[in-house]
Simulated scan of single mutants.
Amino acid sequence: MTTVASTTAGLPTDGAPHLSHLDVLESEAVHIFREVAGEFENPVLLFSGGKDSIVMLHLALKAFAPAAIPFSLLHVDTGHNFPEVLEYRDRVVARHGLRLHVASVQDYIDRGVLRERPDGTRNPLQTLPLTEKIQSERFDAVFGGGRRDEEKARAKERVFSLRDEFSQWDPRRQRPELWQLYNGRHAPGEHVRVFPLSNWTELDVWQYIAREDIELPGIYFAHEREVFRRAGMWLTAGEWGGPKAGETVETRLVRYRTVGDMSCTGAVDSDATTLDAVITEIAASRLTERGATRADDKMSEAAMEDRKREGYF
């Protein structure tokens, strides 16, 4: 006797399809992108070529397929970014026919508007180029890749984060977000920062990258690199001011958990050359990526919150 498989095999007893936690996170992010597209006139997506912005762009492409995404991209270029990441950024923009705005920290330094810091770090100098680009282009919603697990100031954020006419953040003006209802109301001159990955963790991001087979810059995987030790981190030598006297350059097998300004983004010792190996490594880690590899967040206990109040993400 031939047995016919039930059409409900593998489904819960109520007949509803099973959704993995990645399915739920993806659905939430897609909903946020579509909500912003319907509610705002001129959104923009921050895109640096880092893994979180790569996942955001992937989600945005899914949200509006087969149409093009209804907004452009924005990168605040410190001038000290990793060449591998910039090459990836430009390649992806060209592949999808996207428009990329670049706000250059170097331009502001050349004009005398900003000054180099003694430590060579330019991450704190990003705020003015970012906020002026938002104002000049009249962006009313800005997608960022911040996640609540990264850092305690970011854990205070809502998905829709209202910024005043000076792009400043006031935690007292955060709005309730019940049942995935988002309030994008803002006065002229104000805008909203939007975080579609708020409820994701670093591990979620990597698992999603593996599931979707998303291409990443090779810098995220273990490779031999010339680095030197400073403040407990392996930094890449460069024109920004490293290494100093007494800091020895050596070749090590490392990878990056996060990418940003070379002067403050450290590598970690790793032999993880595949997605599976990276996921295993992240699952065993007890330090957040920013806590382990970002010197700019270690300047003070409230470094990130202070920068957010000034207009940074």
Rank of each mutant, 00 (worst) to 15 (best):
D119E: 03
Q135V: 12
V105H: 09
I109C: 08
R147Q: 14
Y108V: 02
K152C: 02
E116Y: 07
Q126V: 15
A153I: 02
K152H: 14
K156E: 12
Q135I: 10
L98F: 09
V142F: 11
A155G: 14
T131E: 02
T127P: 09
L100W: 07
G146F: 01
L114N: 01
D110G: 02
R99A: 04
R148S: 15
D110F: 05
E151C: 07
S161V: 09
E132Y: 03
Q135D: 10
P118N: 05
S136M: 12
Q126A: 14
A153H: 12
L128N: 06
L125M: 12
L128S: 08
E165K: 07
E132S: 09
D149W: 00
F139R: 13
G120R: 03
L125G: 09
D140T: 03
V159G: 05
Q106W: 09
G97V: 06
L114S: 07
V102I: 00
E151T: 01
R111G: 00
E116M: 14
P129M: 03
L125Y: 07
G145V: 01
K152Q: 11
R158G: 13
E150H: 06
R122M: 06
T121H: 09
H101Q: 04
V159S: 05
R115S: 09
D107W: 05
E150I: 00
E151P: 08
R138M: 03
R154A: 05
G97D: 09
R115T: 15
R163A: 04
L130P: 10
L114V: 13
G145S: 02
V105R: 11
Q135K: 15
Q106M: 14
G144K: 02
S136F: 13
G112I: 14
E137I: 00
D107C: 05
G145D: 11
F160N: 08
V113Y: 02
D140L: 00
L125F: 10
V159N: 12
N123G: 10
G97E: 03
G120E: 02
L128W: 13
F160I: 02
P118C: 01
G112H: 11
D140H: 05
G145N: 07
T121A: 14
F143A: 01
H101T: 00
G120A: 02
L162N: 04
A155D: 15
R148D: 15
L162I: 07
R163H: 06
F143T: 01
P124Q: 08
E132L: 09
L130Y: 11
F139H: 15
D149N: 04
E151G: 05
P124A: 04
D119G: 02
E151I: 00
G144H: 08
E151K: 02
E165Q: 13
H96L: 00
D164Q: 01
P124F: 01
F143M: 01
K152P: 07
D140I: 01
R138D: 03
R148W: 06
F139K: 12
I134D: 08
D107Y: 03
R163W: 03
H101F: 14
A153M: 12
L130W: 05
L128Q: 14
L128I: 15
R147A: 12
Q106T: 15
